[in-house]
Simulated scan of single mutants.
Amino acid sequence: MNRKPIYVEIDIDTDMDSLWRHTQTPELHEQWDLRFSEISYLPRDDEKDPQYFLYRTRICFGLDITGTGETKANIHSAGGERTSTLTFGSDQQISLIRKGGGYWKYKPKGKGVTFMTQYDYQTRLGIIGRWFDQMLFRPLFGYATAWSFDMLRIWLEKFIPPAVTMQRAVMHYFSVLMLVFLWCYQGIVPKLLFPEAGELALLQALGWFGGREEQLLLLLGVAEISLGLLIFKLHRHRWVYFTQIVLLALLAAAALIGTPEMLAAPFNPLTLSCSMIGFCLLAHWSARDLPQANRCLRKPAYRSKGDERGWHRSMSKR
């Protein structure tokens, strides 16, 4: 199974020293990189020697992946470029990654810096491990790297700490998933599966549709499901939430004008609409400065098949 190394590149509007400090200082590095929960440098006698370190990654259910690594920095004063090479590995059997290596490269670009990485690793569990890595783990690991790089960019360009960015991201995605769930649920359950539970009677009570309430209810169900899926796709566009707020207000008003006695019900259009409007406001606010993996370049322009074969040969010797 031919694996491709993970590559991520991003332009950051910052100076070289700031970027170097935020990526080479363990206390700063572990704040923005989703791949590591803790990084600890081990003592060394000479700064020219490789830097050995311990790392820990929290996964789930109280489990941690621990491992060791070695990094060495090189500064090329002529062009202002810097490079940091890395090898890492874990002896834990629960770690899919057995050992790997790669580099970080820092290249001046205008008033900023192009920050790039390429790395690869060997897996455990034989063909099953390689298949799982190719189908799920490697794409997610690459996505986490790119998302982390953009979170670092936000920290350096807009001075928003990663902890704040993570809180916004959790709030945003939770609000979006709740909106998607509520729109799809309202489209599927009370309109398509069980219209006789009350939605059909509500439309009939309005008396506006001349006996075509069933067809209209079907169209409304399909429209709400489509809207839920559209929100999932366009969740970063803030106009989506203003549109929803207007639509929710109109739907609630129409329902309560036709049957005002519904206000006495424990669950009614007003309470549902207000709750969804609240999620819209949260999702709209938290969409600001949200990291995006697709801001990063995922393939180097200079890569050739020969380069990839050479990379795999070097990794197989580690």
Rank of each mutant, 00 (worst) to 15 (best):
R212N: 14
M166S: 11
E30K: 11
G198Q: 07
R303P: 01
K107N: 08
A293D: 11
T145C: 15
L229I: 14
Y185Q: 10
L96Y: 03
L220E: 07
T259I: 13
V113H: 06
R212H: 14
H172V: 00
I12D: 07
P50T: 03
V180C: 12
F115Y: 11
R21V: 07
L218W: 06
I97S: 11
R130G: 07
G102F: 01
A254K: 08
E308Q: 12
R212L: 12
L248I: 05
Q118H: 01
M1R: 00
D120I: 01
P195F: 08
I128P: 08
Q118F: 03
W285G: 04
S84W: 03
R44A: 09
K72M: 07
C184T: 05
L63V: 14
H172L: 05
I160Q: 11
M315D: 01
W104G: 02
T71W: 01
I188K: 00
K48E: 02
F141L: 15
W208D: 10
A163I: 10
H235F: 13
R168P: 04
C296N: 04
L216T: 07
Q31L: 14
W104N: 11
A78E: 04
I75K: 04
I154A: 04
K111L: 08
Y185R: 05
A197N: 10
G210S: 02
F53D: 13
K4G: 12
D307R: 02
V246Q: 05
L206M: 14
H29V: 11
R153K: 12
T14A: 12
R288M: 06
